[in-house]
């Protein structure tokens, strides 16, 4: 067991998979010699050499297209898109190419690749470098979408993503790179499509993803100590595949559902889960499911404004307390 940062967990995760399999290659902007703009790939170039860890030009379409062509023909590429906002300039590969090839060709082609990308707010970078874009990806048949919240999950879910035969969008949260957590020694391989109950509770279920996970946990602590409300906190971890059984099981116990979403409100992942719960667990509910999200707005740059836009502990606690009538 060792304490590792989320950033160093990315390095260890990629390293673990590249050591295991010569077909795993890694490409992106500034990822090799410079070690990545978030320093999350430092040392990989020295360790695995220029044939396996490759710097690219600022050409997001070339990066994702090359990853796909390599994946179709026998490699298992990890491609980095520096900021997830940039997915918009290469969205054709995410929306049209990776996920549809297998279906359109009646199963002839494969696309085993991982797109790692820095997602989410908190860095005061403004509207085009701060978004949470998981919903852009979640809606597309054929993709898998993963977003870890802890160093241990970074390694385990990244390994699972690299070993997965389908294209995986792997969303690393920029504001989590510096957090630390306990990580076991040796190889770590997790399972996609498994949510994790991080805190048991009998009164309400809180679902969260990535940076909203620590905020949900802090909110649950406060609700317990200050208001006597015991919340079960679930880290969703993987939007596709989605572990609905863990979620439905929790709602059956607590009879209350809250989602905490960093994304702007419309068509957020929480809306899909609320719809599933309404459809399949309506009579388990003691009250309406509540989504706590960023408003339907772009993100501002100033620290004060950005903080006010995102769900925070005070907002989460207040909303849950009021809904629960405490």
């Amino acid at each position: 067991m060792a304490e590792l940062s989320y950033r160093d967990a990315v390095i260890r995760g990629i390293s673990q998979e590249m050591e295991r399999d010569q077909d795993v290659v890694f490409l992106g902007e500034d990822v090799a010699k410079a070690g990545g703009v978030f320093k999350a790939t430092v040392g990989l170039y020295d360790k695995f050499g220029p044939l396996r860890v490759r710097d690219t030009p600022i050409s997001e379409q070339a990066i994702l297209g090359a990853a796909m062509g390599a994946a179709m023909t026998g490699l298992k590429p990890i491609a980095e898109i520096m900021f997830s906002d940039f997915i918009a300039v290469c969205f054709d590969y995410i929306a049209n190419e990776f996920p549809k090839s297998r279906y359109m060709t009646n199963g002839q082609t494969k696309c085993p690749l991982v797109v790692r990308t820095g997602n989410g707010a908190g860095s005061r970078f403004g509207a085009q470098h701060s978004q949470s874009v998981e919903n852009w990806c979640m809606m597309i048949p054929g993709l898998k979408v993963v977003a870890p919240s802890s160093p241990r999950d970074v390694i385990g879910l990244l390994a699972a993503s690299v070993r997965d035969p389908d294209p995986v969008i792997f969303l690393e949260h920029k504001s989590l790179y510096s957090i630390k957590g306990e990580v076991p020694d040796g190889e770590i391989v997790d399972t996609l499509g498994t949510a994790k109950i991080l805190r048991p509770g009998k009164d309400a279920t809180i679902l969260a993803l990535a940076m909203m996970v620590p905020r949900a946990l802090a909110s649950a602590e406060k609700l317990a100590t200050e208001h006597g409300i015991e919340c079960e906190v679930i880290d969703v971890r993987s939007l596709v595949p989605l572990d609905t059984q863990t979620i439905l099981g929790s709602v059956a116990r607590t009879n209350r559902l809250f989602t905490v979403e960093e994304n702007p409100r419309l068509c957020g992942w929480g809306a899909e889960i609320v719809s599933i719960v309404a459809d399949e667990a309506f009579y388990d509910l003691d009250g309406p499911p509540v989504r706590i999200t960023t408003p339907h707005c772009p993100l501002p740059a100033s620290d004060l404004l950005e903080d006010a836009m995102l769900p925070n502990v005070d907002r989460i606690v207040d909303r849950i307390r009021r809904t629960m009538g405490a």
Partner: peptide
């Protein structure tokens, strides 16, 4: 075109 580059890279 980028996809063909990827196959060639392999």
């Amino acid at each position: 075109l980028p996809i063909a580059c990827g196959a060639a890279w392999r």
